[in-house]
Design a protein around this nucleic acid. Structure first.
Lengths: 138, 138
DNA sequence: CAGAATCCAACTGGATACTG
DNA sequence: CAGTATCCAGTTGGATTCTG
């Protein structure tokens, strides 16, 4: 599995990455890294995610075999999510990305500021930029 | 920079991850991993990407300081893209993800098949699923 | 509590045509 | 060759309301 070769298997890999690369996936998987969590617990921990999106993201993760969903039919109901072996496996490279993001956010923000200085006309054509720029302004 | 703590900096990290998690970002960065590439070269190597999307993704990466864009005003014009130090830095955790995806694609596909067996009514509510299922059927 | 169901605005990304 | 400029369909994701 050499890293710099393999021109053919780009697309299939892209599909998996796209799935993993969802805005919240990394956050959810890493939150589950230290044990099972209930739905509401996860929602609070991640923060800023709507239930609809959390629900469907968790469904995706369940579908891909990264998490298990355990329903306890009590009143009120209780649902726990937990990483599978595959999920814990994925957690390794994923948390590496997460830590990279935390560690290098300042560098990225600085690069964005620099870019805007050099290209004053650049202005946000993509939404993600706006969000990051707001952070850069802090 | 502990992995399992830090409830606060989830969102900011999410923004960076979202950026990185774009469908093509990982593919492009890893393709650039073994040296500078021209626009058309990249387009062929990645495969299946439109020039519009390739262009805007490259702009994003440039904006974030991951790649440099070098224009040689000849006829025909020539533009080279190359990883910056920050980009090469990012390449490390990113290619880990890429390799994970290649190595574990079968497991993910198997999980999807299993899921569909267990939940016959599940059927594609999200597009990404359709793509993966088509692959699963191969 | 955990979600399902709607409604709807915003963003993504593909196809096509044109330019220096 | 390497874009830029449109147009446009499909998806994502937020807010809100309702249910077992």
């Amino acid at each position: 599995m050499k890293p710099t070769d393999s021109h053919e298997d780009c697309r299939p890999v892209g599909e998996i990455l796209h799935q993993i690369g969802g805005k919240w996936t990394v956050l959810i998987i890493t939150r589950l890294g230290d044990g099972p969590k209930r739905f509401g617990e996860l929602k609070r921990m991640v923060g800023g995610i709507s239930q609809k999106v959390l629900t469907s993201t968790l469904r995706d993760l369940e579908m891909d075999g990264f998490v298990t969903r355990t329903v306890t039919p009590s009143i009120p109901p209780r649902v726990d999510y937990e990483l599978t072996d595959l999920g814990r496996d994925l957690l390794v490279p994923l948390s590496a990305i997460g830590e990279w993001a935390i560690a290098n956010r300042p560098r990225v923000l600085a690069a964005r500021r620099q870019y805007l200085e050099d290209h004053p006309e650049a202005m946000p054509k993509r939404a993600a930029h706006v969000a990051l720029m707001k952070q850069a302004a802090e």
